[in-house]
Amino acid sequence: MLLVFATNNQNKLKEVQTLIPENIELLGLKDIGCFEDVPETKETIEDNAIQKAEYIQTHYGYDCFADDTGLEVDELHGAPGVYSARYAGPQRDAADNTALLLKNLEQTTNRNAQFKTVIALSLNSKLSTFTGICKGEITTEKHGEKGFGYDPVFKPLGHDETFAEMDLALKNQIGHRGKAVNQLVDFLNKLSEKK
């Protein structure tokens, strides 16, 4: 089976490649000649993931899955949410986004938050979605050099380290993306067994 992961992020592609069944050949957007920006214009994380997966299936003819992730902060009524990557503006700068988040939480003690990843799979024109959630809290300052995005200020529930201080294997085990990918992998494994 041939499956496209709608990403240009080679690290993400490699990470997922190690998890999926061996009988599935995984390609990235570059591999299918897709160099344009895949649209992400929806109002929810789930709808964005679906939009990306369906766009690749419609325009390139491949079975495909896509993910979208957002950070949802209680005190900010779920913001930045679907706008996590461009929270501080269209430049999509992680440092700017993190600085704005910390500024917006300066006056509060409620720092509860969750990361949410939704993976949408468009396979044989049927749609399935898989959701991974990791609850935690926003720290008052950055900690750690690993990871990306909001990782230096997100401390998962039951852990003393932020995602940016954590070993990647542990992050994948407890994290939102890892949980969603594991559900996708279970689904693909069950399909493989039926064949």
Rank of each mutant, 00 (worst) to 15 (best):
M1W: 03
V4Y: 00
F5L: 15
A6H: 10
T7H: 05
T7N: 07
N8K: 15
N11S: 14
K14L: 13
K14Q: 13
E15W: 02
E15F: 02
V16K: 03
V16D: 01
P21I: 14
P21M: 12
E22F: 01
N23C: 13
I24V: 15
L29Y: 02
K30G: 02
D31S: 12
D31H: 10
I32V: 13
D37S: 14
P39C: 09
E43C: 04
E43S: 12
T44V: 13
T44S: 13
I45Q: 00
I45H: 01
D47Y: 00
N48R: 10
N48V: 13
A49H: 06
A49G: 12
Y55D: 05
Y55W: 15
I56P: 00
I56A: 00
T58P: 00
T58K: 10
H59T: 15
Y62W: 14
Y62G: 08
D63I: 12
C64I: 15
L71P: 11
E72N: 12
D74Y: 01
D74K: 07
D74T: 12
L76W: 09
G78I: 12
A79H: 07
G81V: 14
V82G: 02
V82E: 06
V82H: 08
V82D: 02
Y83T: 14
Y83Q: 13
S84W: 05
A85K: 14
A85H: 06
R86K: 15
Y87I: 08
G89E: 06
G89Y: 09
P90G: 09
P90N: 14
P90R: 15
R92D: 03
R92T: 11
D93A: 11
A95H: 09
D96L: 13
T98C: 06
T98S: 03
A99G: 07
A99E: 08
L102C: 09
L102R: 10
N104S: 04
E106S: 11
Q107F: 05
T108W: 04
T109R: 11
T109M: 10
T109E: 08
R111V: 10
K116Y: 00
K116V: 15
T117L: 10
V118H: 04
V118F: 02
A120Q: 01
L121N: 07
S122M: 13
S122R: 12
N124Q: 14
N124S: 12
N124P: 09
S125Y: 02
K126W: 00
S128N: 11
T129L: 12
F130S: 08
T131L: 01
T131N: 04
T131E: 09
K135N: 08
G136A: 11
G136L: 08
T139N: 05
T140S: 09
H143A: 06
G144A: 09
K146S: 03
G147I: 13
G149Q: 06
V153P: 05
F154R: 13
P156E: 08
P156W: 01
P156I: 11
G158A: 01
H159A: 04
D160E: 12
E161S: 08
A164L: 12
E165L: 15
D167F: 02
L168A: 13
A169I: 15
A169C: 10
K171G: 04
K171F: 06
N172A: 03
G175I: 10
H176V: 08
R177F: 03
G178W: 00
A180R: 04
N182Y: 03
L188K: 00
L188E: 00
N189L: 10
K190N: 13
L191W: 05
S192D: 11
E193R: 08
E193L: 14
